[in-house]
């Protein structure tokens, strides 16, 4: 049918948001199917290397075996996950609680900004993994050094992106609310904060992925419990299956945490339009 074809053409050519929102079903299914195909291919190659390539299990266990291990030893993995997850949560929360006020202070005071900013950069350049052993010396083998390592490693992206966010508000908007007689507090909550939230979440998302790294690194260097400890101990025993299963569980934890942050973002980030309608934008 030529008439529908003709109508379709300008619709897909027309720019922007509507095209992105109402994509054809086929293309949306492709979004889900394509990466799935890739995963299947990778797993198949992996399985083939083990089954037919003569790769020893202690070098590379078969994917099926890893999944089986993940669930057959579920109790152990679960037990060891708890301290790791707690360290991630507490350390991550600590980073945010410290980073937000510092970012705010840097935006409101140029003295604070000039004093703190170079220090932040230097602190970020110091390889934090390298100072992990120091934490063990200072704080022992418990949860504290892990928490601090997590906090330290995810602090930087959160503080920098928050600062960018708090500076995103347009000066004219701030002038407007001042002329309405707004207090600093009102100007912050009504204008600066909502402008900043998307940017803060960008930092938090990077932070949460780093937090898992921080916890595992701290457990490698020295801790008495945790998935990282389980992993490093298994490596000592040449128990590759447990190593792989630990990595898999850590990945699951990281992915779930990231998902939770994304969900929070969707709930908290103020809606920025969406249903753009053409009868509204066309008339004037």
């Amino acid at each position: 049918m030529t008439s529908t074809d003709q109508r379709k053409k300008p619709a897909t050519a027309s720019t922007g948001t509507r095209a992105r929102r109402r994509r054809p079903l086929r293309s949306r299914i492709a979004d889900g199917v394509l990466p799935l195909i890739l995963v299947v291919v990778i797993v198949a190659v992996w399985q083939a290397m083990v089954s037919f390539g003569g790769v020893k299990e202690y070098v590379l266990p078969a994917p099926g075996a890893v999944v089986k291990k993940m669930f057959s030893d579920f109790g152990t993995f679960a037990d060891q996950s708890v301290p790791t997850i707690i360290a991630i949560f507490v350390g991550f929360a600590l980073a945010i609680v410290v980073a937000l006020p510092i970012a705010v202070a840097m935006v409101y005071s140029s003295v604070v900004r000039r004093a703190v900013y170079p220090l932040l950069i230097v602190a970020q350049v110091v390889p934090k993994v390298a100072i992990a052993p120091l934490f063990i010396i200072w704080f022992g083998f418990g949860q504290l050094p892990k928490v601090l390592m997590v906090a330290l490693i995810c602090f930087f992206p959160v503080v920098i992106d928050s600062m960018v966010g708090f500076r995103a508000a347009r000066p004219e908007s701030l002038m407007l609310v001042r002329s309405m007689g707004a207090s600093r507090w009102q100007a912050f909550w009504k204008v600066r904060w909502p402008w900043a939230v998307p940017s803060i979440f960008a930092g938090v998302k990077v932070g949460i992925t780093l937090a898992v790294v921080g916890a595992v690194v701290a457990e490698f260097v020295g801790a008495d419990t945790g998935l990282g400890v389980l992993l490093i101990t298994a490596r000592g025993d040449m128990d590759s299956l447990t190593v792989f299963a630990s990595v898999a569980w850590l990945t699951v934890i990281g992915a779930v945490l990231f998902g939770v942050v994304e969900l929070l973002e969707r709930v908290l980030v103020p809606r920025r339009g969406g249903r753009r309608s053409f009868e509204a934008s066309g008339s004037l």
């Binding site: 347009r170 004219e172 001042r178 002329s179 309405m180 007689g181 009102q186």
Partner: peptide, 30 residues
């Protein structure tokens, strides 16, 4: 800042997360 005054800038300076009505109501909220 003199508050018995209204300002219109070159850009509308509306807050994108507020509807038209909510943007006008900002004045009253503050």
């Amino acid at each position: 800042p003199y508050t018995d005054l209204g300002i219109v800038f070159q850009g509308a300076e509306l807050l994108p997360w507020r509807t038209a009505l909510q943007n006008v109501m900002l004045q009253a909220e503050i």
